[in-house]
C-alpha cells in the first residue's frame, strides 16, 4: 500500500492510479453487501465512481487562477444563498438556480464543478452524511446538463426554455436524492409499490423545489446571465471557443435580456 506519492510528477501519477484497485475492491464489497440485503454501499460506490470522469476532464485542462476563483465564488454564493431563504419554505432555495446559471454561462464542465463543490462545501456547514455524494452528483449533473442545454443555441437561454429546464431539474434532483431509500425499499420488499410510495411521499418537497427553480429563473434568470456574461467577458475567464472565434454569439446576449 504505497499511498505516499513522491511529491513530484511521478509521485502524482502513482497517487492517481491507487484509485483503481481501491475502486475494484469496493465494488466487490458493495456487491457482496447487496447480496446480503444491504444496498447503502453499492449506491455510494457507484455515485463516487461516476465523478471520476468529470474530475479527470476538469484536471486535464490548464486552468488560470481566475477560472478556479470564479468557480469557487459561484459555489460559495450558492452555499450562502441558502441563508436568506432559511426562514421561508424549507426546500425553497436558489442553489439549483445558481448552479444552473453557472453551467449556462461558464460551460458544462464548470457547471459540474460548481454543483459538486456547492454540495460538498454547504454540507460542511449543514452536516455531512451519506447524502453528500448524491447531492454532489445531482447538482453536478444539473450544472453539466445546463451547460450542454444552453450550448446548442442562444435561443435556449431565454426564459421559457430555462423555466422548463429548471422545473425538470427540481423534480430530477428530488428523484436522485430518493434513490438511496428507494433502492433500499426494493432490496427489502421487491415491490414497486413501496418504491413508488417513497416517491409519492417526497412529491410535495420536489414540487416546492421545482417551483423555486421556476420562480428564480422567471424573475432573475436573464439578469444573472447578463451579469455573469459581463464578468466572463471582462476578465476573459472560462471563455468558450465559439465566443472567441466570432463575437456574434456574445453580442446577441444583451438582446436576449431585453
Amino acid at each position: 500500500m504505497n499511498r505516499l506519492g513522491e511529491g513530484n510528477g511521478k509521485g502524482l501519477l502513482s497517487a492517481k492510479w491507487i484509485i483503481f484497485p481501491v475502486a475494484i475492491a469496493y465494488l466487490g464489497l458493495a456487491y457482496l453487501s447487496l447480496q446480503r440485503g444491504n444496498s447503502l454501499l453499492i449506491g455510494l460506490v457507484l455515485v463516487l465512481l461516476s465523478m471520476i470522469p468529470f474530475l479527470l476532464r476538469f484536471e486535464r485542462r490548464e486552468r488560470k487562477a481566475r477560472e478556479l476563483m470564479l468557480i469557487a465564488v459561484m459555489a460559495a454564493v450558492a452555499t450562502i444563498s441558502r441563508i436568506p431563504f432559511a426562514t421561508l419554505l424549507p426546500g425553497f432555495t436558489p442553489v439549483t438556480f445558481v448552479v444552473m446559471i453557472s453551467g449556462i454561462v461558464f460551460g458544462a464542465e464548470a457547471g459540474w464543478m460548481v454543483g459538486a463543490v456547492t454540495a460538498l462545501v454547504s454540507n460542511l456547514f449543514l452536516g455531512q452524511g451519506p447524502w453528500t455524494p448524491w447531492q454532489m452528483f445531482a447538482w453536478g449533473m444539473a450544472g453539466y446538463t445546463a451547460g450542454l442545454f444552453a450550448h446548442r443555441s442562444v435561443w435556449r437561454r431565454r426564459r421559457l426554455p430555462l423555466v422548463l429546464f429548471g422545473a425538470a431539474w427540481g423534480f430530477l434532483f428530488g428523484w436522485i436524492m430518493n434513490l438511496t431509500l428507494a433502492i433500499d425499499q426494493w432490496v427489502q420488499t421487491h415491490s414497486w409499490e413501496a418504491v413508488l410510495g417513497k416517491y409519492v411521499l417526497s412529491f410535495p418537497f420536489d414540487l416546492i423545489h421545482a417551483t423555486a427553480n421556476v420562480f428564480f429563473v422567471l424573475t432573475f434568470g436573464p439578469s444573472w446571465i447578463a451579469l455573469l456574461e459581463r464578468y466572463r467577458r471582462k476578465y476573459g475567464a472560462l471563455e468558450r471557443i465559439e465566443a472567441t472565434k466570432g463575437d456574434k454569439s456574445s453580442e446577441q446576449i444583451p438582446a436576449v435580456n431585453g
Binding site: A65, L70, V77, S81, P84, F215, T219, F220, S223
Partner: peptide, 30 residues
C-alpha cells in the same frame, strides 16, 4: 413572492460584490 424576490435580490448583490474582489484575489494568486 415579495420576500422571495427580495432574498434573490440580496443574493444577486452579494454575487456582484464578491466577484469584483474575488477576481483581484485571483490576479494576486497569478
Amino acid at each position: 413572492p415579495q420576500r422571495a424576490r427580495n432574498g434573490a435580490r440580496l443574493v444577486g448583490t452579494l454575487l456582484s460584490w464578491t466577484l469584483e474582489d474575488a477576481l483581484q484575489t485571483a490576479d494576486s494568486m497569478q
